[in-house]
Design a protein around this nucleic acid. Structure first.
Lengths: 248, 248
DNA sequence: CGGCTCATTGACCGAAGTCAAGCAGAGTGG
DNA sequence: CCACTCTGCTTGACTTCGGTCAATGAGCCG
């Protein structure tokens, strides 16, 4: 496990930006006090590997700021992203002591870590933590299943449109705005990361983005800033106009 | 929701075949007594739809016997299987009142159902249930992620070999035998169901099975009985010889 | 400036999808 | 008993979407 970069920050739970969404969301103040004792912060730079699959893992953690990815690889190098970790998402599995996936920081990331043993003991005694973790895990399972539909049955164009919809929707929810009409947002992923997410090659990603641009579904400013003139149009390109709503 | 076929059976929890693996696995006898009060059995015939996506769902359940599938569809009819429910697997989500996926019986299925409201109340008071459900959900999430790698990055041939490996491995674990050397098992899925599982067309499934047969990796007796002369060979065809082990 | 990384685009190819014909086995009914 | 239909499966011919290989471009930084 890589943890060279460790400018440890001190932050009180009550001031924590993910206080209301993370695994600790349902904790009472006395429960938070106990968590406070076993927690510590760790920072990682963009591009850094946070955890290698198969490594021993003696902590669990919440993403506080930044974006990280969960990836899996076949031995010949083909890789598939299997999770996108946003602020408040949980990393690690209580009751397991080796990591199942590679975790990589795509932006600078700060994590709130708990030593595994004490955390597990606390989970036994504190139903609020287990309850919240269950809720979060069920949400992740739903997201994974939506993603399976995308991987198994959508065309390249639909895959790109779906990814853009997801990012747009998440961005809107952070800004507390409705995800409709015309929208602007940053795309925090490289073409390669998008390809790994969608089960495509980076060339196909590039081509399909160009095609969507050519057809007026999206416009780019620079490589990473996307503007969508008509969100409904993008959603219908994604194939699942019904509801959508996966990943946050 | 379809529930025409309801030959209700009476079965005491202590005699239940899935007692040690289901959501109730960690319950004490007094906890079981309370579950006993809110449970009822329901049977479904092979081919029957158990739940339609979007329908109101006022119960949660465990599969007691048989196999069911979870599927998702795009409005133009493309469908993707997102879960395979085997005995002891859990259906439904506490805290949600409409079904997210279609649930279909592929064989005759018996389910142990709990009315949702009382079950949710019990979960609040009974950490053992929430703990077990968390464990099971985390396992499902791992399986879903392994499946995402398959859908996103494996070739048709590898997909088929992976599916056969999974079924073979599960069969071996039921028979309490090691999954190696030469093996025989039944394939409880039609070509179409396999295609929906693997994100392929049924023609491709058929062709790849023929190819594996031609290459001596497997042999068929009838349409559904598979024999594998060399399990290692099959595993290496699946691409992930390292460990494997998804789904049960 | 050269040397990076990331992205775009083109030419070509091949794996898997589509469309279509036909087979095998299980029922069903005359 | 045979003829007929139905469903599930196989196989072939052809097409196409996305992958592969390769050249080129745009920023960025030492």
């Amino acid at each position: 496990m890589a943890c060279e970069d460790m400018d440890t920050v001190s932050l009180h739970c009550s001031d924590c930006p993910i206080r209301h969404r993370a695994v600790c969301a349902r904790c009472e103040t006395d429960e938070l006090d106990r968590l406070e004792e076993i927690k510590y912060y760790r920072s990682f730079e963009a591009g850094q590997t946070i955890i290698w699959a198969g490594d021993r893992m003696d902590f669990v953690a919440s993403v506080v700021t930044g974006i990280a990815t969960l990836t899996q690889t076949l031995e010949d190098g083909r890789t598939q992203m299997v999770g996108l970790l946003l602020p408040s998402d949980f990393v690690g599995r209580p009751g397991r002591n080796t990591a199942a996936y590679n975790v990589t920081a795509t932006t600078n990331v700060m994590m709130c870590c708990f030593r595994k043993k004490p955390f597990e003991e606390m989970m036994e005694r504190t139903p609020h933590i287990a309850q919240r973790l269950l809720q979060m895990t069920l949400d992740e399972l739903d997201a994974a299943r939506e993603w399976m539909l995308l991987l198994g049955r959508k065309t390249a164009r639909e895959k790109i449109a779906s990814l853009l919809s997801i990012v747009a929707r998440r961005d809107a929810s952070i800004k507390m705005q409705p995800a409709q009409g015309s929208m602007n947002f940053e795309l925090p992923l490289t073409r390669e990361a998008m390809a790994d997410y969608l089960g495509l090659t980076l060339e196909t990603v590039s081509r399909q983005i160009s095609a969507l641009k050519r057809d007026g579904v999206i416009a780019l400013e620079g490589k990473r800033h996307v503007s969508v003139p008509d969100m409904d149009r993008l959603l219908s390109e994604a194939g699942d106009d019904s509801d959508g709503g996966f990943l946050v």
